[in-house]
Amino acid sequence: MNQSILIPLVVGVISAILGYLLGRLSKKSKNGNEKVLLNNKIAKLESSLRNCKESKLILETDLKLAQESNVFIPFDATLAKEVFGKKIKENDLKIIEGVGPKIEGLFHKFGINTWKALGETSIAKCQEVLNSGGERYKIHKPNTWPKQAQLAYEGKWEELKDWQDNLDGGKA
């Protein structure tokens, strides 16, 4: 073979091999960068997941403590209906023996809108609420109302129903 053809041929083959190797190296470098970026994203997501799990654990613990200390007690409408034989709405003050729609309205005017709030209200304050309605409400005796409301708030439906069965218009 002629030397004039051999040199360009060898240079071409060497150039082709070098081009191929450089291309592979740059591709590996690019893939390596993508891999690093993806690993960083995975690490961030795993960290975020850990934080979420820790937050969930804290919230579950707080909820359990709150329930144990009667700060928050979920309302069980099904159980209430089962015991009373009728649908009970949450925080309906009329479930209290001796409290009707008009008396409930008086309590609402005083900002006493929940069983919890009524359960924490003194008998004297209950009488003050009644007195604010005029002469026709002064005859009511709210001696048991806070305790009844507390039982409703705590979801002690059986105990409340049994007690109410022995009351006369909310009076012991």
Rank of each mutant, 00 (worst) to 15 (best):
L18R: 07
K28P: 06
K44I: 12
L93T: 01
H108N: 04
V129P: 08
V99Q: 00
K81P: 10
V71F: 15
F110H: 15
E46I: 11
L38H: 13
V83N: 04
L57D: 10
K28F: 13
K109N: 14
I103A: 05
F107Y: 13
T114H: 03
L160E: 01
K125V: 14
E82D: 12
L45A: 11
L45P: 09
K56N: 11
K89D: 04
W157G: 02
V129F: 14
L9S: 12
N166Q: 00
I42C: 00
H140G: 01
R136Q: 13
G85M: 14
E54L: 03
E97Y: 12
L57E: 14
Y137S: 11
N113G: 01
G105S: 11
T114E: 02
I112H: 07
A80M: 10
K94W: 00
E128H: 08
L106F: 08
L118I: 12
I139P: 01
K53S: 06
T144M: 14
D62V: 08
K171L: 10
G105N: 11
A124L: 05
L45Q: 13
E82F: 12
G133C: 01
G32M: 01
K102L: 15
L59W: 09
N143G: 09
P101A: 05
K30C: 08
E34V: 11
L160F: 08
I139S: 09
S122K: 09
P74K: 03
G105V: 08
A124P: 00
W115G: 08
N143R: 10
T78I: 12
E120K: 09
K81G: 11
E158D: 07
I103E: 05
A124I: 05
K30L: 15
Y137G: 10
I88P: 01
I103K: 06
G32I: 00
D165C: 13
I5T: 12
F84W: 05
P101L: 03
V13C: 00
A80H: 13
G23D: 05
V13F: 05
